[in-house]
């Protein structure tokens, strides 16, 4: 087991490096955009004097390198600074949004992961049957449409008929049942978008193993087809499946801005887009770091789980 801990430590260190590089890249990218916060903030009423005043007040007149390291110094001590737009601490601004984003991602994952695993196992079991073809075709159809299209179709079918609300804004007093009800449509949209990938990977990973001698052995021991798949093929197919799940979970956290916009859901993605538009650097940086951390941590988790699923790696000779 000790090599797993050392792997985790190494990967975390590499993850920190990744985060640093991401923060530099994001900083440079926003610098390259035309205009800055002062100009965007003042808009049409900008005069060179007012722009300069705001820049001076917010420290935007400092050289780029100085600003970056001031910001980095704050982050290292846990201070993400204040939003340029409304002067509130970035941490407060992000806290509720992050909660919302994680909730929606978990909600969608709670439906999508079991669904795609079960479907993947079933289509592997009934491979090349009508069921296999229909399941594959519908999953591919769902993934081929752009997210907003799927979202609007669902609104058309399920919200226009009044079954589910099309706005996912949650009143502060809402109980769990109501929250789940109000956010069902965005969760369903995301499920439709990610299921195909995971299901097809599960199917492929299992079918890939069916020609192995140990699968033939299981059949020759008289085991039924379901047991052959679940007990003999699946445990050996876990590594690729886990990796695809991690990739899709990361997508659910970082890539859902379109769905948030369609359903007016106050998540991180929307905040990120708004902040880029207004050149609100501290917020952009903080959100980018959260997204990057999600990728780093989920990939690390996937690697640890893949290792644990392989007896050859945990039980040495």
């Amino acid at each position: 087991m000790s090599h797993i801990w050392s792997m985790i430590a190494k990967r975390l260190a590499l993850g920190l490096l990744t985060l640093f590089i991401v923060s530099v890249l994001i900083f440079l990218a926003t610098e390259l955009l035309p205009g800055d916060f002062a100009q965007e903030f003042l808009g049409q009423s900008a005069t060179p004097e007012t722009v300069a005043a705001i820049r001076r007040e917010l420290g935007l007149d400092q050289p780029m390198v100085t600003r970056y390291f001031d910001w980095l110094g704050g982050v290292v001590t846990g201070d993400f600074g204040n939003s340029l737009s409304n002067r509130r601490p970035v941490a407060d601004l992000i806290a509720t949004r992050l909660g919302n984003t994680l909730f929606l991602a978990l909600y969608a994952a709670a439906i999508a992961v079991p669904l795609s695993l079960i479907l993947g196992i079933l289509v592997a079991l009934f491979r090349n049957s009508m069921f296999d073809r229909i399941a594959n075709a519908s999953a591919l159809t769902a993934i081929s449409f752009p997210e907003f299209f799927v979202a609007y179709i669902l609104i058309l079918w399920l919200a226009q008929t009044g079954v589910f609300p099309s706005m996912a804004r949650i009143p502060a007093t809402a109980g769990w049942g109501e929250i789940l009800y109000r956010t069902f449509l965005p969760a369903l949209t995301l499920t439709l978008v990610v299921t195909a990938h995971m299901m097809r990977m599960t199917r492929a990973a299992i079918i890939n193993l069916l020609a192995s001698p140990y699968i033939e052995m299981a059949r020759l021991k008289g085991m039924n087809p379901m047991r052959v798949i679940v007990k003999h093929a699946l445990p050996n197919a876990l590594a690729p499946i886990i990796n695809v799940i991690a990739l899709n979970l990361a997508y659910l956290i970082t890539g859902v801005v379109v769905v948030e916009v369609v359903f007016v859901y106050p998540g991180l993605g929307q905040l990120m887009v708004d902040s880029v538009a207004s050149r609100d650097m501290p917020v952009v940086q903080a959100v980018a770091l959260i997204f990057a951390s999600a990728y780093v941590l989920l990939n690390l988790l996937a690697d640890v789980l893949s290792t644990l699923s392989n007896p050859r790696l945990i039980h040495r000779r």
């Binding site: 140990y214 033939e216 052995m217 020759l220 021991k221 445990p235």
Partner: peptide, 23 residues
């Protein structure tokens, strides 16, 4: 047939290393 396999007729494969499930 499946009820016979493993129970009344059994099989020993050429490569045991490949025919035992590694998991």
């Amino acid at each position: 047939r499946r009820k016979l396999l493993g129970k009344r007729i059994a099989y020993v494969a050429q490569s045991a290393a490949a025919s035992f499930n590694p998991a």
